[in-house]
Amino acid sequence: MLPNLRQTYFIIFAGCTSLILTALYMQYQMGLHPCPLCVTQRIFVIVVGLIALAAALHNPKGFGNKIYSGLGLVSGLIGAGVSARHVWIQNLPEDQVPACGPGLEYMFETFPLFDALALLFQGDGNCADVVWSFLGLSIPAWTFVAFAGLVALCFWQGLRKA
């Protein structure tokens, strides 16, 4: 028996929560500090999770479900795009890697908000470092896989009848 819409939204929320807890574990217990693109990916995981939580609590029917699933789908696709860019940067030849930029705190203290956000999405040389991998895939590659699953679930939710 398949889970109903509400249960599936809670599953999406739980998955996003697990991803963020894993990222925090890697940061604070393993000492793997996030680069700007990592932070951006985290933001989109949180956005998808919050949309799913809102949908689970609201338990929408019909068009409302399509709105929530569409918002989750778009957020997941943007996150997947950021992950794909990150993997691309990691696979560039050394001479083509962008220069390392300023730290996140400095960016948000010094630049206007939209300029800081643009720099965050762009990534820098710090993003090219592969600091951890599992089964030959880096953290951004695994995050891309996670976004692909979240996108698939959100798409499926939009097709389902309430």
Rank of each mutant, 00 (worst) to 15 (best):
L2Y: 09
L5I: 12
Q7L: 01
I12W: 05
F13M: 05
A14F: 10
G15C: 09
C16T: 11
S18R: 12
I20E: 05
I20Q: 06
L21A: 08
T22N: 11
A23R: 09
Y25I: 13
Y25L: 15
Y28E: 14
Y28G: 13
Q29P: 02
H33I: 11
C35G: 12
C35V: 10
P36D: 02
V39S: 10
T40S: 11
R42H: 13
F44Q: 05
V45L: 09
I46C: 13
V47G: 03
V47C: 08
V48Y: 00
V48T: 05
L50P: 05
I51L: 07
A54K: 08
A56P: 08
N59S: 15
P60R: 04
F63N: 09
N65A: 13
K66Y: 08
K66T: 15
G70F: 01
G72P: 01
G72F: 06
L73E: 06
G76E: 09
A80G: 15
G81P: 07
G81R: 06
G81H: 02
S83Y: 00
V87K: 14
V87L: 06
V87W: 15
L92K: 11
P93M: 04
P93W: 03
D95W: 06
P98G: 11
A99M: 09
G101F: 08
G101N: 12
P102G: 12
L104S: 13
L104E: 13
L104P: 15
L104N: 09
M107D: 15
T110Q: 11
F111S: 07
F111P: 03
A116F: 01
A116V: 02
L119N: 11
L119V: 03
Q122S: 13
Q122N: 14
V131C: 00
V131R: 10
S133F: 01
F134D: 15
F134M: 15
L137C: 07
S138F: 00
I139W: 02
P140H: 10
P140I: 12
P140K: 14
W142S: 00
T143Y: 02
V145K: 05
A146R: 07
G149R: 05
L150F: 06
L150W: 02
L150C: 02
L153P: 01
W156Q: 05
W156Y: 13
W156N: 04
G158R: 08
L159Y: 05
L159E: 10
R160F: 00
A162V: 11
